[in-house]
Deep mutational scan, measured.
Amino acid sequence: TQTTHELTIPNNLIGCIIGRQGANINEIRQMSGAQIKIANPVEGSSGRQVTITGSAASISLAQYLINARLSSE
């Protein structure tokens, strides 16, 4: 079954999640098997909405990979 998880990434950290020309986010997508959508910046908001869709296992793996990127910054 597909589930969806949403999280907010601070604007100053979204770059390390996306990577150069989307390299990091594509790697996270491939490794986790989850669909990951990053919302466009919202004016006045300090973060970007990230939506992860997939199986429970792929979502938790995607979250783990995202958190690993954030903590390495």
Rank of each mutant, 00 (worst) to 15 (best):
T1M: 13
Q2I: 15
Q2A: 07
T3Y: 06
T4E: 09
T4N: 08
H5N: 07
H5E: 10
L7H: 01
L7Q: 04
L7W: 06
T8M: 13
T8I: 12
P10V: 02
P10L: 02
L13M: 13
L13C: 07
L13Y: 10
I14P: 02
I14C: 06
I14E: 01
G15C: 05
G15Y: 10
I17S: 02
I17T: 02
I17A: 02
I18W: 06
I18T: 06
G19H: 01
R20L: 11
R20A: 13
R20W: 07
Q21W: 05
Q21N: 13
Q21E: 09
G22T: 04
A23P: 04
A23M: 08
N24Q: 12
I25Y: 04
N26Y: 00
E27G: 06
E27T: 09
E27S: 11
I28C: 02
I28T: 07
R29H: 06
R29L: 04
R29S: 10
Q30K: 15
M31P: 00
S32M: 02
A34Q: 02
K37M: 10
I38C: 01
I38Q: 01
I38F: 05
P41N: 06
V42C: 09
V42N: 06
E43I: 12
E43Y: 10
E43R: 10
G44A: 06
G47L: 12
R48C: 08
R48N: 04
R48E: 01
R48T: 08
R48F: 07
R48H: 08
Q49E: 07
T51W: 10
I52C: 00
I52K: 02
T53M: 10
T53L: 05
T53P: 01
G54A: 00
G54W: 00
G54F: 03
G54P: 01
S55N: 11
S55I: 00
A56C: 09
A57G: 08
A57F: 09
S58G: 06
S58T: 06
S60H: 13
L61N: 06
A62I: 05
A62G: 02
Y64R: 15
Y64I: 05
L65A: 14
L65R: 02
N67K: 08
A68P: 05
A68D: 14
R69L: 05
R69Y: 00
L70G: 01
S71M: 14
S72A: 11
